[in-house]
Simulated assay, not measured.
Amino acid sequence: MKKPAKTNGRLVITPPVSPFWSASDYAHETEIMRSTVWPAVQKLLAENWPGFSAAFTADDITLCTHCRSEFEALTADEAADGSTNQDEHSVEGEPVCRYAAIAEFRAERGIPALAETGGVA
């Protein structure tokens, strides 16, 4: 019989991000994490919780240039579900955060603008 157990918990440390940064700015933040923050975490673990192990990884994320949050978009299922999309023109990949982002997405693809915003963000 299966017995569920929780293991391999994750501690995520996220440095500051900005949509106005260049690739070199993000590379600099990642290097700070790798050269300064990561050694401090390793030292803390070694001194206080011997036997714990950790690994450093850096994930690629995509930011919304309108709201500066991590970019989120409709899935195919959400676009097909009238309760989760903006209108009958919503499609997979459409942003979900701001009307301005939706307007930009639709304009790039020739999709009609949202009616409730009058076609403007």
Rank of each mutant, 00 (worst) to 15 (best):
P95V: 01
W21G: 13
S24T: 06
T75M: 04
V41P: 10
G9H: 11
A113M: 05
D87N: 10
G82P: 05
W49D: 14
F71C: 09
D81E: 06
L63Y: 03
E116W: 15
G9R: 15
E78V: 14
A107G: 11
C64M: 02
T14M: 15
V17H: 05
E94Q: 02
V91T: 10
L74D: 04
T117P: 07
Q86A: 12
A23H: 11
A107H: 05
C64R: 00
V96R: 02
E88Q: 08
F105M: 05
I102H: 01
F105G: 01
A27S: 10
A23F: 13
T7H: 10
L45E: 01
G110C: 02
A54V: 07
D60C: 09
H66A: 13
G110Y: 08
F20V: 15
D87Q: 14
E94M: 02
D59C: 02
T30L: 15
L114G: 03
E108D: 06
I102G: 03
E94S: 07
D59A: 00
P19A: 00
T30V: 08
D59E: 11
T84E: 02
L11K: 05
A5L: 14
T36V: 08
A55Q: 14
F52W: 12
M1A: 12
M1Q: 11
S22A: 08
A101D: 04
E47P: 00
C97R: 01
N8G: 10
C67Q: 05
F105W: 05
I32V: 09
W38D: 05
R10M: 05
P39K: 07
F52R: 13
K3E: 15
R68F: 08
T75D: 04
P50W: 06
P112E: 06
Q86D: 13
R68W: 11
G93D: 01
H89K: 09
P16F: 12
S22K: 08
G93R: 04
R68G: 15
E104H: 07
L44I: 12
Y26T: 08
R109P: 08
E29T: 11
P39N: 02
F20Y: 06
T65V: 13
A80C: 12
H66C: 14
R68A: 13
P50A: 13
A103K: 10
A79N: 04
E29W: 09
S22L: 07
F52M: 15
Q86Y: 10
A115D: 06
A121D: 03
A76F: 09
G110P: 01
S35V: 07
V37L: 02
A73K: 02
A54H: 00
F20G: 12
A40M: 09
I32M: 07
A58S: 03
R106S: 00
D60K: 14
